[in-house]
Design a protein around this nucleic acid. Structure first.
Lengths: 208, 208
DNA sequence: TATGAATTCCGAATGTAATTCGGAAGAAAG
DNA sequence: CTTTCTTCCGAATTACATTCGGAATTCATA
């Protein structure tokens, strides 16, 4: 709850309550991402973070709460980042293409985060009532906004239910990412970005 | 490995090595489906199946192996069932529509099975190297075959990569099912079937 | 700068649940 | 009716998550 008032703790890119909490979260994302929730142990995360096992429980209610804290912290950062990348791009389809590219690229660079968000999180029994769920929601809200914008500017078919269209886009992206996470991870994930964007854009496009 | 040679053990619809194994699997699907892998306990499954805890380990290597056995047994059954429903339907798009309807309907009637296959399974570290993964693959192979058939008969755009098209269809279906599993489950899942089918068909359709 | 009061930290104890052990109970064969 | 093989399971054992109690550190104040 309290920051170091004196020391040089000026920049910490991900806003955090304390350094300790940050250390633990970083180790958690690493270990959970590598081994999955089930096979990761608190002892291992504590060791990696350089703290005692019990210390983790000073900051997080339990193991599940620790996992759920990851998307809350990180997704908060993601939304400004993607919005930043979106700046200056005109037209719903160009934005959608950028979103796909950006998201695939992000997961490719942060596969641990991807595994947690796309594979592990949803098995938490309380997931829908957590902040983590809200964070995921607001992230995918961006896609919904793009689709609605596209309908206003006439590029996207008016008769499409925008929520269903979002499911189409998000579902396809997630499916491709999950396959990549589960399997190889050898070749670049973004190699799918363009072809997927073409297909989705063609699906939504108003016909002349 | 050995069947009761005398008793009335005549019909067991799902081919099984023994009644015991079947009892355990049925309880496992029930308990895992309700509580998730994490929160289900072996003791609870054993009790529900009317066997001792240790007996489970006579039939399955461990808790994870028990979960992985579920899709192997059940998906084997699903493929003939869906093929049966597909009989007499002409045209790729009619088949696709039927597949979507059938799959949503099946999950709605068997949400426990759905949770296991769509939410829990993928977190198993060894998933891709299991029979369960192969079973899921051959199930979704049906969609791929429909798409290829559609391309041959000229209904589906030739220039689409059929594997990507499958990702689109499967991803959208899974996304909608997962939302339903995580949230309400109150209203019928199949209410989405028609609209989703329309959208997917329109996405794949050859333009005149 | 010293002192009491918080706060942070963690080693060791506790509790829960997965897994293994060792042998009982039942069937098959002679 | 004994031997052998299989099935079954109660009672340990083990692996972790979580809690406890107090040590170490920091803070506020005089």
């Amino acid at each position: 709850m309290k920051k170091k008032p004196n020391s040089v703790q000026n920049i910490d890119n991900i806003s955090r309550e304390s350094e300790r909490k940050g250390q633990i979260l970083n180790s958690a994302i690493k270990i959970f991402g590598e081994k999955g929730f089930q096979n990761a142990t608190i002892a291992e995360i504590a060791k990696d973070a350089g703290v005692g096992d019990a210390t983790i429980y000073e900051y997080f209610k339990n193991k599940e709460d620790l996992m759920l804290a990851i998307p809350v912290e990180f997704t908060k950062e993601l939304i400004p980042q993607i919005n930043d990348h979106m700046m200056g791009i005109k037209g719903a389809f160009n934005k959608l293409r950028k979103f796909i590219w950006w998201w695939l690229n992000y997961v490719e660079k942060n596969p641990g985060y991807g595994s947690i968000v796309l594979l592990e999180l949803k098995t938490s029994k309380t997931y829908v009532s957590t902040e983590a769920y809200q964070a995921a929601r607001s992230f995918y809200q961006i896609v919904l906004d793009i689709i609605k914008e596209g309908q206003e500017e006439g590029a996207v078919k008016k008769e499409i239910n925008p929520y269903l269209a979002r499911s189409l886009c998000v579902g396809a992206m997630e499916h491709i990412i999950i396959r990549w996470l589960l399997k190889d991870r050898k070749y670049p994930l973004i190699q799918y970005a363009d072809e997927l964007a073409d297909l989705l854009i063609d699906s939504l496009k108003t016909r002349v």
